[in-house]
């Protein structure tokens, strides 16, 4: 069932990102609930993680020597599931059962899903769990790395900063923290709900190495991950600037798409738009 890793070139990865977007739209439409904007906005990051960066084996999801990715903002799990499914962790037909009774794919991540490393959804916890794992891997002198994604609205949770202090204290250079900086949260724009700026200064002052990237540039995502590996004695945070709802014109940058699924008509239109984007790569 596990698919062979495709050739690691940027066009190929960009196409996969669009495929994941289509999977997300279909699955959300079918579920009639779920979080659209963040899932679409992080498609490139998930593609690079699961198709280029992480040392993982879909046939042995619990292999001891594996890299770990923790999704702290569990509500964008449709994109995680799409990546895991595309990578062969479970049968793609499961995507049709997202949020349904007796499903492998819960509304927020559950460790029963192959490839899911932690339950997430109560915000602020995933980064602490990742810090714990990075500490454990260091204690065991493992070469494997730990990655965690949080949203930006999630940074309102004080626990995030408890975890950030601890990671710096123990010099966890095996930890990469990706922040989906899409400027929205459930109640509106982050600057209205709870201003976070200057975010870079905040995290740097916690003694992290900080990078800022275009979260839709496959190239920048890849090179930021490489850079993080070269940093020693400090954890790395990557502030990934993303467009929520990316790829679908009527969803982009609109906070109202944070927590709702597309209707069948909207889904059809969205998929059409994404397919066009994909086709454009072929033509280029």
């Amino acid at each position: 069932m596990a698919k062979k890793l495709p050739a690691d070139n940027n066009d190929r990865l960009q196409k996969i990102a669009h495929d994941l977007r289509i999977t997300v739209i279909k699955s959300l439409e079918k579920a009639k609930s779920g979080h659209t904007a963040g899932s679409l906005g992080t498609a490139e990051i998930f593609t690079v993680l699961y198709f280029s960066e992480l040392k993982i084996d879909p046939k042995k999801p619990e292999k001891t020597s594996r890299d770990r990715f923790f999704l702290s903002n569990g509500h964008i799990c449709p994109i995680l599931y799409a990546a895991l499914s595309e990578r062969g962790f479970f049968d793609p037909s499961e995507m049709n059962r997202f949020r349904q009774i007796n499903s492998l794919l819960q509304g927020h991540p559950d460790r029963k899903t192959p490839g899911v490393e932690t339950a997430g959804g109560s915000l602020g916890q995933g980064i602490s769990v990742a810090v714990g794992t990075a500490l454990g891997l260091k204690m065991s002198k493992s070469d494997n790395r730990t990655y965690v994604m949080t949203s930006d609205g999630e940074l309102n949770e004080g626990q995030t900063w408890e975890a950030a202090m601890l990671a710096a204290k123990y010099k966890l250079d095996n930890l990469t923290w990706i922040i989906d900086r899409n400027l929205i949260q459930i109640g509106g724009f982050t600057k209205q709900v709870m201003p976070l700026e200057n975010l870079r200064d905040k995290i740097e002052s916690f003694n992290w190495y900080v990078l800022e990237i275009d979260g839709h540039s496959i190239d920048e995502i890849k090179s930021s991950f490489s850079m993080a590996k070269r940093i020693s004695k400090r954890p790395t945070a990557i502030i990934a600037h993303t467009v929520p709802g990316k790829g679908v014109s009527f969803m982009e940058d609109d906070p109202s798409w944070h927590g709702k699924p597309p209707s069948p008509k909207e889904a059809e239109k969205a998929i059409e738009e994404i397919k066009k984007l994909k086709k454009k790569i072929n033509e280029d």
Partner: peptide, 28 residues
Amino acid sequence: PERFIEVGVAEQNMASVAAGLSFTGKIP
């Protein structure tokens, strides 16, 4: 000392960090 982690006055972090440690085979 190499098996001891001081998280400071941060019980919420302590609990989630413990879970993360357990995922690497440690018994926190």
